[in-house]
Design a protein around this nucleic acid. Structure first.
Lengths: 112, 112
DNA sequence: ACTTTGTGGGATATATATGATACAAGAAAA
DNA sequence: TTTTCTTGTATCATATATATCCCACAAAGT
């Protein structure tokens, strides 16, 4: 049975994956690596590398990370979702912290 | 049959994937999302999200990109493997480009 | 105390990724 | 032109990801 290409994947996500595949291809060609060469260094088949470069959303993170590693771009991956730069997350965290300071009714240890 | 954890994946790549999973978990908690909530928004099962956050290298790029999309961090992905910042690739490209400028013997359009 | 909630792990069934191979189209070089 | 190399595509077999259930445990709230 032929299944559709997974319409649940957000368009932006799919586009980002395609873009990454194209960039990996560019980086590979710049290094004068054939797909066969690079695939063997990644310990994957040439077809799998082809799917990665063509933006197939189904390829695993292992394949993706291996490609960046072979290209010497693995550090780029650590620029993603850096907690210190997650402005939205930090904002919501602050919002959530002191809903209201519960005046501990019984305890009066802190009176002054 | 129980299969080993894929020793072919470079250590750095595996570590990067683990780190990304941990970061996604942090970002999720900052947004007060339960795994079930976030998984449903990603259109994946809770278990798949669990594998992503625990650094399973086998999860697909679709799951990874969906997670970043739900968290509003999808733009981070486009910072990876940017051709303009690929210093190594640019260097090798320059090395390879002008092996020798073939002096077009016959044409003399450019004389001055 | 109880209840709810969040998370992890197992088992099974299904969908899909992956590998191996072969073949062909296209590009580049001789 | 030929030859070689690179890449795309197709098929088949196998491995694995994924969904869906279940249960267990821990933490936090009532």
């Amino acid at each position: 049975m032929i299944q559709e290409k997974d319409s649940s994947l957000p368009l932006q996500a799919r586009q980002a994956i395609s873009e990454l595949g194209a960039r990996i291809r560019i980086a590979r060609k710049r290094r004068s690596l054939t797909m066969a060469d690079m695939a063997s260094r990644m310990f994957v088949s040439r077809k799998t590398l082809s799917r990665l470069e063509n933006g197939d959303p189904g390829v695993s993170l292992a394949v993706f990370a291996s490609a960046l590693w072979v290209l010497g771009l693995e550090k780029d991956l650590l620029e993603v979702a850096v907690p210190e730069r997650d402005t939205v997350g930090i904002f919501r965290e602050r919002q959530r912290l002191p809903k209201r300071v519960r005046a501990s009714a019984s305890r009066e240890d802190l009176d002054f």
